[in-house]
Design a protein around this nucleic acid. Sequence first.
RNA 1: GGCCCCAUAGUCUAUCGGUUAGGACGCCACUCUUUCAAGGUGGAGAGACGGGUUCGAUUCCCGUUGGGGCUACCA
Length: 490
Amino acid sequence: MADISPAPAPAAPRVRFAPSPTGFLHVGGARTALFNWLYARHHGGAMLLRIEDTDRARSTAESTRAIFEGLTWLGIDWDEDVVYQAQGLARHQADVRTLLERGAAYRCFCTQEELAVRRAEAEQRRESFRYDRRCDRLPDDEVQRRVEAGVPHVIRFRVPGGVTAWDDLVHGRIEFPNQDIEDFVVLRSDGTPIYNMAVVSDDIAMRITLVMRGDDHVSNTPKQILLYRALGHELPQFAHVPMIHGTDGRKLSKRHGATAVGDYREQGILPAAMVNFLALLGWSPGGDREVMALGEMIELFSTDGLQKKPAIFDPTKLEWMNGQHLSRTPAAELEALVTSELVQQGLATAEELAAQHDWYLALIDLLKVRARTTHDLVRHAVPYFRADFPYDPDAVAKAWKDADRTAHLLAGARDRLSALPEWRADAMEASLRALADQEGVAAGKIFQPLRVALTGMGVSPGIFEVLETLGRDRALVRIERAVRTLREGG
RNA sequence: GGCCCCAUAGUCUAUCGGUUAGGACGCCACUCUUUCAAGGUGGAGAGACGGGUUCGAUUCCCGUUGGGGCUACCA
C-alpha cells in the first residue's frame, strides 16, 4: 500500500463549494460554503463555486439562482467564473477513457434489473452485496463483440487491494480497507459520469488543493482517492466537517421547520448574525469568543478549531445572536433593511423617511436595542408612523385598569406637559415626577398608562424618549385621546 | 446487516495528562429601573459506561453502549 501522505498546505490554496441545484441553499450547505470561504480568505487563497448539475432531472435554474442569492446575502463571494459540472462532460468522459486505457476500469454489462435481483438475494441471505466482478472476467473478444453489437454497459472502476487512507484535517487518519469498496460505476450506460467521477475530474481541473465538505462524504473519499491515483494526480487535502442536525438529533430536514437560509432572512435575521451563528456550529476560535464580525472570523479561522461531532441547530440562540448584532449595528447600516420592511408594510414611504432622515436614524437606534429581529423592530415602530396604531388589550387591561383614576392622572400629565416651554426629556421628567408627588402615586403609575396612551403597547423605550421622538403635537393628541376614551368608557 | 465517523450540562463550546472542568444560549433568582430588552451579580446544570496506560486521566489505548453517516447506472 502506497503511503498517502497529505499534501503540504499550498501557499495559495484553492477551495470550492459544490452544491447541487436541487433546492434552496440549506443551512448545512451554507455553513460548508462559509468554512471554505473563511479558509480561502484567511489564507489568501481562492474560493470557487461549482454547481453540480449532472442530475438533469432534479437540477433547476431557479435553484441555482437561489444558491447564488443565499450566498450573496450571507456575504460569501467567489473568485472565478462559476463552474457548471454538466459542461465538463467531455472531460469527464475523457478521464474515464484514460481509466479504461490504463486498465483501471472495465466495462460491465450487467443490467440494473439483474443487479437488483442479486442485491435482493444477498439481502435474503443476510449478506452484504458487493458487485462480484463477473464482467471483469469476460474474455476480451467477448467484450469486444458486445461493444460492437452496441450492448449497453457501464464502466466500473476496478478497486485494487490494500487500504486507502488519508489524514483528514479534522478527523486525523481515516482508513478504509479496499475490500469493503465495490467496483463502483464511474460512467453510466448513457455515457454520463457518476458523481465521484465528475467530482474528481472537476477538482483536478479546478486545481483544488483542499476539499472541505460535509461528513456525509467521508465514505466517498476513498473512492475519490483511488480515482486520483489511477488518473495519476496528486491528492488534495481533505477536511470533513460535521453535519448540522435538528433539535431531535437527526439530519436537518424539512420537518425541522426553517432549513433554508432564505427562511431566516424572511424572519428578520441579519446576515452578519446568521454567518456568526453558523460559523460557531462546528467551529470555535478558542477562548470565549462568540459575537464576531466577518473580519474577525476570517482572521481567526483555522481548521484546528473544527469540531468532529455534529451540532444541533438551536434557533433560540440564533435569535439571541441576532439581537446582539442588531444592537451593535449602526442605524445607518440597518436603514435599508428597515426601510424596505416599513415600506412593504405600508407604514411609510422611502421619501417620507428620507425627508426626516435624522429623526428616522434616531428611531432605529432607539428601537434596535430591544429587538431580536428586524420584525420586532418594525413592530415597535408602528406607533411612530400611524396615529391609528392598535392598542394591545393586555396592556390596556393592566395599565388602564382604573379608568377614572387613569384619566385623571393622564389629564394631569397632559396639562403639565403642554405647559412646558420646551419639549425636552429632562424637563418632562421633572414635571411628571412632580405630578406623581403631588398625586401621591409612584411615578410608574403615570408612566405606564402614558406609555399605553402613546404607543398602545406595554413595552417601549424609555417614556421620555418616546415623548421626544413622537414630538409635542402628536404626543399631546394621543394623551388627550386616551383621556377622552377613558372618560367615555368609564 | 456491512463499512466509516462521533461521544464535556437541554443546546453551542473551552480544555491539547495535574483546572474548584471555563464561557455562551436557555432556565431561576437578585440588581438597575417608568415597562421591556440590554447590562450587572449570583444559582441550578456536564466529562455515557467498563477496563487498561500513568504518580495522576475529560484528555492516551481497548471494549461496551448510545448517536450519526454511507451503503444506486442520486449528488
